[in-house]
Amino acid sequence: MGVKINFINPFGTDAYNGLIMETMSPYLTGGAELVVTNTKNCPENIDYYYSKHLIEEAIFESCIEAEKAGFDAVIVGCCYDPGVRVARELVDIPVIGPLEATMQMAPYYGHEYVLVTDHHKAVPYLRDMVRLYGEEAHCRKVDCIDWWVTDMIQDTAGVARDAVAAADKIRREAEADVCILGCTIISASHEKAIMEGTPRDVAILNPNTMALKMAQSLAELKQQGAYAISRRAYYQNLKDRNADEFAGVRRQFANRGK
């Protein structure tokens, strides 16, 4: 039986859903099903960290609802990997962060990589993510193309053009083997250009497809009884320790904004 994967765009708008679905669907195999959704009742722009933290609360709710709806895995569709680790505390299905998944797969493509993100504000944040994931030895540089997500959807061809140029330039400067496009919308824009005839450079890694394959693999392992999240420490669930306290927190969250 094929697995069912929920790609959750963390932006509180459906403006990006079609682009994601269009560019990820060709990579579905083995009867896997992809459903692209977005968060609700939260900011539409994750570029600023205040909005990002508000969005993360909506992500937690979306992951809980995805598990209830029968999804076998969730991808949180942003290379900030927003709320991913907290969401793993809340659900038993795999929760995939695109940046983490791609960093883990990058060594199969090249020994060292550069990370190209969207704008200058994201650069230091992703440098922190490199350290968090223990990738300082392999990530040679973090840089950007200076596009904002609300502009990208208006000109995906321009985003793809700038991303390819930046990937090539930064990779050569850093003497790295491959480049991770550290933004799901940059990656989708680049993938769309490939679908429209731009030659593929296999040294440019797409976090969307990497996350999809990671999600499918872990979901299939879970179906076969060979995957479970350890609740010993880091991902221990409050619900298991104190169900009443967990229910109270959930009620408080549900009343927000009413």
Rank of each mutant, 00 (worst) to 15 (best):
A160D: 04
E112A: 06
A166V: 02
G158D: 10
L221N: 13
D168S: 13
I145L: 05
D143P: 03
D92G: 14
T156P: 07
E135N: 12
T198N: 09
Y109P: 00
Y109Q: 06
Q104M: 15
R140Q: 05
D143E: 03
R131L: 09
L90R: 14
C139V: 15
D128I: 01
T198S: 12
P82V: 03
D81F: 02
V116P: 01
V123D: 12
C78D: 07
E191L: 14
G134C: 12
L212S: 04
I180H: 09
D155L: 11
K222V: 07
S217D: 05
R88M: 15
I153G: 11
V149W: 01
P107L: 03
T156E: 12
V202T: 12
K141G: 02
T150W: 07
G110C: 06
A188D: 02
A165F: 06
C78G: 03
L99S: 06
V178I: 15
M210G: 04
V91L: 08
A166E: 04
V91R: 07
G77K: 01
I180L: 14
D177M: 05
G197N: 06
C78M: 03
V164K: 12
R171M: 11
D118R: 08
A174N: 10
G97D: 05
H190C: 12
A157K: 14
E196S: 04
K222C: 07
E196K: 14
V84M: 10
R88L: 06
I194H: 04
R200H: 08
D128C: 05
N206G: 07
P98K: 01
D155R: 15
G97F: 00
Q104I: 07
R172Q: 15
M103N: 00
T209F: 05
S189P: 06
P124I: 00
T198M: 15
A160F: 04
P107N: 04
Q223M: 14
E100T: 06
H119Y: 11
K169D: 01
P94I: 07
K192I: 05
V114I: 07
I145A: 00
D92T: 13
C179T: 15
Q216D: 10
V84H: 00
L212C: 00
D168C: 09
A215M: 00
D168L: 11
T156D: 08
K222N: 11
G134A: 10
N206K: 09
I93A: 10
G83A: 08
M152G: 07
M105Q: 07
N206T: 09
I185G: 03
C78N: 03
A160C: 09
K222D: 05
G110Y: 04
A215G: 00
Q154V: 09
H190K: 11
A160I: 04
A203R: 15
M152P: 05
A106C: 01
H120A: 14
C79I: 02
R127P: 08
V114F: 06
W147I: 01
Y113D: 01
A101T: 00
A122K: 03
K192M: 13
C79W: 02
M195V: 03
D155C: 10
V116L: 12
A174L: 09
D168Q: 14
T184W: 05
L212P: 00
D162F: 07
V149D: 09
